[in-house]
């Protein structure tokens, strides 16, 4: 039996790495005794004991900074933030420290730390709903990973732990499929179908920095990440029946960005839609569009379009959130527009 939920797939990857390397340790808020807000670390305290799986105070600066200090001196910490929004409290440690230490110090040191966090909108208003990959991708020195399936999550998490550089590993809440005791999981796990590829038990690695073509098509390329990959795949099915063939490229890693795969696809289709849950302005989608303009302009038969969150703090009211967060419908409309 494989792992059908992202929460289980990530846990399986962490177990493989912790079994293999006693220097892999974990820290974060409510991760040990409780098992984590989204259950990723469930059972790990029992399995590895309190020297390797540690509950921290609500102290994001210390979580990030302690992980960095331990990483500089030989451990391989996995630090969990309860939501990616709270990484804001630790931005100095992540962006000024972890990202820069190696280069500033002339390559003397490695900082093999993984900063994990859930992201994405689930009706929790402006401070618990953001997709913040661009904050980290905008900082040279960090790698930024955001898998869309259990299969990718497991292989990428193993690579992240083995990486000798700081990796920000972002996990969409709707893909976990797990909830706290008593809680109801807000999830799309179970309704996604075979594109939500399960992770086998056998060990494998997926290299950081490689995009994946999740669906082949001839007419338009949809470049996407995380949960938006699934909205894009559903949109692609509907567009198929309208006679438009969509190729869906899942970036999987946003930094370093695999433009080779994107350009190969756009070279074939001649059209590109970029679909991400983060705000489009100044973001990863903007970067992809800029690189298409620089390196792929002559492939393009139509202007590039972005399908991203609107440029506002995410409002609470469900109708407003739905307006701000990009939908399958929005992807369909954008594809039809570039194919018109």
């Amino acid at each position: 039996m494989g792992y059908e939920r992202v929460a289980d797939a990530i846990r399986a990857a962490i177990i493989e790495e912790m079994d293999a390397d006693p220097d892999v340790v974990m820290l974060g808020e409510d991760i040990a005794a409780f098992g984590g807000a989204y259950r990723v670390s469930e059972g790990l305290l029992e399995r590895y004991g309190p020297r390797r799986v540690l509950d921290t105070p609500i102290s994001e600066i210390a979580i990030a900074g302690t992980a960095i200090g331990a990483a500089m001196t030989g451990l391989r910490p996995i630090a969990e933030f309860q939501f990616n929004d709270f990484m804001a409290c630790a931005m100095d440690q992540i962006c000024n420290q972890a990202a820069k230490i190696r280069l500033m110090m002339g390559g003397q040191v490695r900082v093999p730390v993984v900063f994990r966090a859930p992201y994405g909108a689930t009706g929790r208003a402006a401070q618990h709903s953001q997709s913040l990959e661009a904050w980290f991708a905008h900082t040279p020195g960090l790698k930024v990973v955001m898998p869309s399936t259990p299969y990718d999550a497991k292989g990428l998490m193993r690579s992240a732990v083995r990486d000798d550089n700081p990796v920000v590993f972002l996990e969409h809440k709707m893909l976990y499929g797990a909830a706290s005791p008593g809680g109801k999981a807000k999830t799309v796990v179970g309704v996604l179908g075979p594109s939500f590829r399960e992770a086998p038990e056998d060990p494998y690695l997926i290299p950081i920095g490689e995009a994946d073509v999740k669906r082949a098509g001839e007419d338009v390329t949809i470049v996407s990440t995380g949960y938006m990959v699934h909205k894009s795949l559903r949109a692609a099915e509907r567009l198929e029946s309208m006679g438009i063939g969509c190729e869906v490229v899942d970036l999987r890693t946003v930094s370093p960005l695999d433009m080779g795969t994107v350009l190969r696809s756009v070279g074939k289709t001649g059209r590109a839609v970029i679909a991400m849950e983060s705000v489009g302005d100044f973001g990863v989608a903007a970067e992809v569009a800029a690189r298409l303009a620089e390196d792929g302009l002559f492939y393009l038969d139509a202007p590039v379009r972005r399908v991203c969150a609107r440029f506002v703090p995410i409002p609470f009211a469900p109708a407003c959130e739905a307006d701000v967060i990009p939908s399958e419908e929005d992807v369909v409309a954008a594809v039809r527009a570039v194919c018109a």
Binding site: R124, A125, A126, P315, F316, A317, P318, C320
Partner: peptide, 16 residues
């Protein structure tokens, strides 16, 4: 209830 008559016009909810 996320209503427009809410103290934050439905933009914030319980946490805001």
């Amino acid at each position: 209830f996320a209503k427009s008559t809410g103290c934050c016009a439905g933009m914030g909810g319980s946490m805001h």
